[in-house]
Computed example of a mutant assay.
Amino acid sequence: MHSDIHFQLHTLTAAELHRETADGHGRPGPLPATAAAPALRVRLGWTLVALGLRLATPTPHSIRLAA
């Protein structure tokens, strides 16, 4: 898909969503976030990044040279 067509579709969809929320017929907005929720989400995100890096990086003892 061409970038200008993608941008136009995105603009139309955003305008439609704005109209729905202005009319009050759309879904309710997001719940108010507490101070603890972003901190937990950030810690969980960095934990998942560290886990992914551990899984993607080979350990030194797993490399074997042919003799």
Rank of each mutant, 00 (worst) to 15 (best):
R27N: 11
L9E: 13
W46A: 11
S3Y: 00
L31N: 10
T21K: 08
S3F: 00
H10S: 08
A33F: 08
T47L: 15
G24V: 01
A36E: 15
A15L: 06
G29E: 02
M1K: 04
A37K: 09
P30C: 00
I5N: 05
L55F: 09
I5Y: 08
L17V: 06
T21F: 04
H25W: 06
R54Q: 13
G52R: 07
V49C: 05
A22H: 05
R54I: 15
A36I: 06
S3W: 00
I63H: 06
H6F: 03
L31S: 09
T57M: 08
P58Q: 01
A56N: 03
P30F: 02
A35I: 10
A39K: 06
Q8F: 07
L55Q: 11
G52E: 04
G45I: 01
T57G: 02
V42E: 15
L51V: 11
R19W: 01
R19E: 06
A33Y: 06
T34Q: 03
V42P: 00
T11R: 09
M1S: 13
G26M: 00
L9Y: 07
A35L: 08
L65T: 12
A36V: 07
H2G: 14
L17E: 13
R41N: 04
P60I: 01
L44W: 09
G52L: 10
A22S: 13
A15S: 10
H61T: 15
T57K: 04
G52A: 12
A39T: 12
S62P: 00
P28S: 04
T13G: 05
L55A: 15
A33H: 08
L44Q: 14
G52Q: 05
L44D: 14
R27T: 07
V42W: 07
A56E: 02
L31T: 10
H25E: 07
R54G: 15
P58M: 02
A37S: 14
G52W: 03
P32N: 02
A50E: 05
T59I: 04
T34L: 03
R27P: 06
R43K: 14
G45R: 11
F7I: 04
P30G: 05
P28F: 01
A37V: 09
R41L: 07
L51T: 08
I63Q: 05
A35N: 09
S3H: 03
A67I: 02
H6D: 11
L48H: 06
P58I: 01
P32C: 00
G29C: 00
P30Y: 02
L53H: 03
H10Q: 09
H18K: 09
L55R: 12
G52S: 13
A37Y: 06
A37Q: 14
E20P: 01
S62A: 13
H6C: 05
S3V: 08
H10T: 13
R41A: 14
T34A: 03
R41D: 03
R41K: 11
A50K: 04
T11N: 10
G45C: 07
L44A: 14
V42K: 10
P60M: 02
L31E: 12
R19D: 04
F7S: 11
T13C: 06
H18R: 13
L48N: 08
E20W: 02
A22C: 04
L53V: 12
L31V: 12
L31H: 13
R54V: 15
E16I: 07
G24E: 01
T59C: 04
L51C: 09
L9W: 09
A56S: 11
V49T: 11
P32R: 07
T47A: 15
A15Q: 10
T34R: 04
E16Q: 09
A35V: 11
L53Q: 05
